[in-house]
């Protein structure tokens, strides 16, 4: 047996100039391909139709189209909250568990930067997929004309959907790496405890939630701050919208950095890779 030959240099142009970014994009693309299956597409279709169905049912119950403010409240609860939350739960929560179950984790973990690329790529795919579903749902709801002056909501709600996806996908990445095999349950717990409970506590803790930022932005976009009841004023932040956007992006970066650090350091015994 002869000794190994020295590793040949890669041919010119073979190496990606930004290998870390290229790997993240490769994972995102691969994950989106995985989402293009009939069951996942059916789930996405439900996510698109669901807000419109609820709004139409509400309008029918009132026997009139929904007024602007009520429509905005319902649309907020349905799209940036319900659709985004559910979409992210099924896309980012199983980020690691899915790989372990498919036996693909080890193939990725032995690549340089593979663990980081796996998490960030899956996060990107979750944001794109869920964001697309939520925005289509928003468009469909506005197209039905069930909310009076509904099209004025398109811009603000697009921002809310994007921020909801970016921030919450990062938040759900934490249970995905800490308890991969119970990640869905843990993510539901995080959604309830962190986002909905802590987000409504008027204290320092709610500063760490995406909910606070989204509530605040909704109030600002709808210009409700002057008419909001004093007790509800406690549930929003008084800084400007740009600060809320920056806060969500910062939270996402911090959550993702922690999740990447945990995943880089995690070890899965061979028995767990099944």
């Amino acid at each position: 047996m002869t000794g190994p030959r020295p590793s040949p240099d890669r041919a010119a142009g073979e190496s990606s100039p930004l290998p870390a970014l290229a790997a993240i994009v490769a994972v995102a693309r691969f994950q989106i391909d995985r989402l293009l299956t009939p069951p996942r597409l059916a789930l996405a279709a439900i996510g698109v139709i669901f807000p419109t169905a609820v709004l139409l049912a509400a309008a029918k119950a009132r026997d009139a189209s929904l007024d602007h403010d009520l429509g905005a409240i319902l649309l907020y609860a349905l799209v940036p909250e319900a659709v985004c939350m559910l979409g992210l739960l099924v896309t980012i929560s199983p980020a690691v568990a899915d790989e372990l179950e498919r036996g693909t984790w080890v193939h990725v973990a032995v690549r340089p930067g593979g663990r980081r690329a796996l998490l960030l790529g899956t996060w990107l795919a979750a944001v794109l997929w869920t964001g697309a579903v939520a925005l289509l749902g928003l468009l469909l709801a506005l197209l039905t004309g069930v909310i009076s002056n509904g099209w004025s909501l398109l811009g603000p709600f697009t921002i809310l959907v994007c921020l909801s996806c970016i921030g919450r996908a990062a938040l759900f990445a934490l249970p995905a790496v800490i308890v991969p095999k119970r990640s869905l349950v843990a993510s539901v717990g995080v959604a309830l405890v962190v986002e909905y409970l802590a987000g409504l506590i008027p204290a320092v803790i709610n500063q760490l939630t995406v909910s606070l930022r989204l509530h605040t932005l909704l109030v600002r976009f709808m210009d409700w701050q002057r008419t909001l009841a004093p007790e509800l004023q406690l549930l929003i932040d008084d800084r400007p919208p740009s600060a809320q956007v920056a806060a969500v992006l910062l939270l996402a970066v911090v959550y993702l950095a922690i999740a990447v650090a945990i995943l880089e350091w995690r070890q899965f015994p061979p028995s767990e890779e099944s």
């Binding site: 990606s16 290998p19 290229a22 790997a23 490769a26 691969f30 193939h107």
Partner: peptide
């Protein structure tokens, strides 16, 4: 996919 993860261009 695996080769891309090793830092190669698409």
């Amino acid at each position: 996919y695996l080769v891309q993860l090793s830092g190669f261009t698409p």
